[in-house]
């Protein structure tokens, strides 16, 4: 029987999943909104993957993204790994000689530098979420545009105004000001794309040597306006792969395959009822945030506790 591997990347905004075969080809994929409920999103995702390939022999599951622990426990994953490594591995499987990965997601942005197939350096945005997907989609709402059309509208612009790139709160007031001054909507949208790029290069990319080939991914890479701003600013071609939003999921599926840890995956997971309970443990001054996961009322795991006292057994 052929072996298949599943990779799931649960981000703050969207949940991505792929199933690959032994040669690393994607045979099923999907992408949907997390909507603040990672468990439901993953159940829907598993359902969707199931309906496209049927009950195949998935021997190993990997999870990545900000909800990787929670979902990893629920799916009984073989590997639970950070998104930086997952993205690097996924991208390297497609663009062998990639040197720089620019990743802008829903709430965070990263830069990953690769040398000879090994990750050598990375940076992540810190407490500031300026210039990420969440910022762009809230601005799209303000302008009454669909976020999916953002890029194509920006393309029409001939003369983009300079918007503050330091902080998205100031960028927003700048944007209103420019609109009131009479700039066209497409110009302001292009200006926003530019400010996302400048913000990224000044914060996340600060002090890093960005060398070609450059691959741009994460949800924002689907925005052609931002891609073009990057190309103009970096003076170099920026590659956006067709499945650019799936690189994390692909990477973690490959890592699951490489791990050689096999745990049979059952698609009927979608029919179970999972509940999580979070509370602050009060047994000592650490006040750990403990999360319990129940599968059909049966406790399957507790995490977040620093010590045994925080572990609740029943």
């Amino acid at each position: 029987m052929n072996k298949y591997y599943m990779g799931i990347d649960i981000g703050s905004i969207s949940t991505k999943g792929v199933i690959i075969d032994c040669d690393g080809n994607i045979i099923a994929k999907d992408y949907l909104w997390t909507e603040g409920n990672p468990i439901n999103a993953v159940k829907k995702l598993v359902q969707s993957l199931y309906s496209s390939v049927g009950n195949i022999n998935v021997v190993s599951v990997g999870t990545t993204g900000s909800a990787r622990y929670l979902i990893g426990k629920i799916l009984n994953a073989s590997v639970i790994k950070n998104e930086i490594t997952a993205h690097a591995i996924g991208t390297m499987s497609r663009v062998k000689d990639v040197k720089t990965i620019i990743e802008i997601g829903g709430q965070d942005s990263k830069i990953i530098l690769i040398d000879n197939g090994v990750v050598v350096d990375y940076a992540m945005n810190t407490i500031c979420a300026a210039g990420t997907g969440a910022f762009l989609s809230s601005q799209a709402k303000r302008l009454g545009v669909n976020i999916e059309e953002f890029g194509s509208i920006a393309k029409k612009s001939t003369n983009s105004p300079k918007l503050s790139a330091r902080c998205s709160v100031f960028a927003e007031s700048d944007l209103v000001h420019k609109l009131q001054m009479g700039y066209k909507k497409e110009d302001v949208i292009k200006g926003l794309c530019d400010s996302v790029v400048l913000n990224y290069l000044n914060n996340v990319g600060k002090g890093k040597k960005i060398k070609a080939p450059i691959v741009f991914q994460g949800g924002v890479s689907k925005n052609i306006g931002v891609k073009e701003s990057f190309e103009k600013e970096l003076n170099s071609e920026v590659i956006v792969l067709e499945d650019s939003h799936l690189m994390g999921a692909l990477g973690i599926a490959l890592i699951a395959k490489m791990s050689k840890i096999e745990k049979k995956f059952d698609f009927n997971i979608k029919d179970f009822n999972f509940i999580t309970k979070g509370h602050e443990c009060s047994k000592c001054a650490n006040n750990c945030e403990v999360v319990q996961i129940f599968k059909d009322r049966e406790l399957i795991d507790t995490y977040g506790n620093k010590c045994e006292r925080g572990k609740i057994v029943s």
């Binding site: 900000s66 790994k81 950070n82 998104e83 930086i84 490594t85 591995i89 390297m92 499987s93 197939g117 090994v118 990750v119 050598v120 350096d121 990375y122 992540m124 490959l254 490489m258």
Partner: peptide, 15 residues
């Protein structure tokens, strides 16, 4: 996430 990625870098994870 930051520390785990750094540990991966030290361990030189590759495909």
């Amino acid at each position: 996430t930051r520390l785990e990625s750094f540990i991966d870098i030290i361990n030189g994870i590759t495909i």
